[in-house]
Amino acid sequence: MDIFVQLTVAGLSDGAILALAALGFVIVYKASGVINFAQGHFLLIGAYVLFAAIVDWGLHWVLGVLVAVLVAVTLGLVVERLVLRPLVGQPVISVIMVTIGLTYILLGIVLLAWGSTPLALPAFIPSDTVGILGAEVGENRLWAIGLVVVALIGFGLFFQRSRQGIAMRAVADDQQAALAMGISVRRVFALAWILAGVSAVGAGMLLANLTSVSLDLASFGLLVFPVVILGGLDSVLGVVVGGALIGLLRQYSAFYLDRELSEIRIGGIAENGITGTAELVPYVALVLILLVKPYGLFGQHRIERV
């Protein structure tokens, strides 16, 4: 039972972080139809910039977070302006290839600047343990869940209430009609990329706080794809549900599935038993979902009046 609660909290906090990162992906996809494969690598930038600000420059963590957010905004703007705007009207595949190229550029920048050794970020969110249902769980995991919930509510209000948020949804629905309303589609695209940057960098910072600052964060970031495929590429609700499901799936399989499989030996291949199913299971889920429900759990259905 203890273990189960711990795994659940860990899964939900992982899921929350994934949901936050995936939200940026969904925003870009909805607004401009671009599939941004670099979204996972934006996380890296968040974590490393935060590390640089706090450790290398000795800034207070509040300032460090501000710096990271500023970098996120710039990153979003630069990517949109220099990389994607020239590609407007080009085939989808070129845009996808460009975002894949972008992942390697980001990875390269991080390698050049910080090397590949994992770095430890001084904890800036309380990391004591607290008891829930008799289990000891890290306070920082609860903080992560709480902060993401606040962020998601913030994003939700932005899209429901604000002028700019409604304009973004309008552009997602019908670009030309939005243009006829005087909405600047370019500005909406730029804003979408800014939000993508901020959400991923935010997720990267939370993740760095839970684990360490390393290149492995990128492979965690890649999990946004199972999340958005599961939830539906264009659904904000799907991101939340998909994030939670993938997060839980990973943690449960890391413990229960690995335990079941640890006795299995296959010739000379798995000499110490099969472990690390957590890395595999989300992608199995991705394939299954694509086979069974290609639009995901909450993907948008085209509205047709009957």
């Binding site: 949804r169 005087g182 509205i303």
Partner: peptide, 30 residues
């Protein structure tokens, strides 16, 4: 649009996934 010319596009072209209220608020963008 800001100068004062608005066009109602052929074929209605409303924002289908928004509510009428939100459609109107999108119209008030400028």
């Amino acid at each position: 649009v800001r100068l004062g010319i608005s066009q109602v596009l052929e074929g209605r072209r409303i924002f289908a996934h928004l509510t009428p209220d939100e459609n109107l608020r999108a119209g008030a963008y400028t």
